[in-house]
């Protein structure tokens, strides 16, 4: 029972992160590397969306998927698909914003120098993003952290159905409502442990690559 809840949490949040990364990483990189009219407006919208209350996202996804909504035929409401959708909407701006900050932190002249070495514009862009790889990784961790700890949206669109859509956070809410605080606290510790694990992994990755660099 507990394992299936943990597994489902990882699955939903992981899949949502995949979509968030698929859109957010290129979008963030593009925002960092190009200048155009209206960019500041897009930035303002992005920053707003980075702080989007998950419940509001949940409500929007709910209305889209509900029997009276435009995407009712999908039959996605109260399924993991809806949860993935909501979490992806929540974490995409976070991934995009963090990637943008990371890529903006790379020396702007680097791209010109790569171009002068014969790189195509796209290739040079890619290498600049790769130069910010640690920041990109951090963005993914931040997105995943937001996903897995999110409760409002998945409760609304997933429904916390046992064996189907119950994840760690909604299980904690349920156990707390029932007054089973010991179970709620253990679930909370599992959640905390997962976050710690992911961040620890990042740290190891960072020190390991640094270690290789230092060793030679």
């Amino acid at each position: 029972m507990l394992w299936s809840v943990i597994l489902l949490s990882l699955q939903v949040s992981g899949l949502a992160l995949f979509f968030a990364a698929f859109i957010g990483v290129p979008f963030g990189a593009w925002l960092a590397l190009t200048r155009f009219r209206g960019r500041s407006i897009i930035l303002a919208v992005l920053y707003t969306f980075m702080g989007l209350p998950p419940v509001v996202v949940g409500l929007m996804v709910y209305l889209l998927l509900s029997q009276t909504g435009p995407f009712a035929q999908l039959q996605w409401l109260f399924t993991t698909n809806a949860m993935v959708m909501a979490q992806a909407v929540i974490s995409t701006p976070i991934v995009a914003g963090t990637v943008m900050a990371a890529v903006s932190g790379v020396e702007p002249d680097l791209r010109r120098q790569l171009l002068s070495l014969g790189a195509t514009p796209l290739r040079a862009m890619w290498d600049v993003v790769f130069e910010a790889r640690f920041g990109v990784l951090l963005a993914l961790v931040a997105g995943f952290g937001r996903n897995i700890s999110e409760v409002g949206a998945v409760m609304l669109v997933g429904g916390n159905i046992e064996g189907f859509t119950r994840v760690l956070t909604t299980a904690i809410v349920l156990e707390t409502r029932q007054g089973k605080f010991d179970l709620a606290v253990s679930l909370g510790l599992v959640l905390l442990g997962l976050s710690f694990l992911v961040n620890g992994l990042l740290l190891i990755l960072q020190t390991r690559t640094n270690g290789i660099w230092r060793a030679v």
């Binding site: 409401l77 109260f78 429904g159 159905i161 046992e162 064996g163 189907f164 119950r166």
Partner: peptide
């Protein structure tokens, strides 16, 4: 809930459970 296939333990209040029943 997890194995029967047609039985859904919503794990929320009456209002949410009625909403679920209405939708599903």
């Amino acid at each position: 809930s997890s194995t029967t296939g047609w039985y859904y333990a919503v794990g929320q209040g009456m209002g949410e459970t009625l909403t679920f029943a209405n939708e599903k």
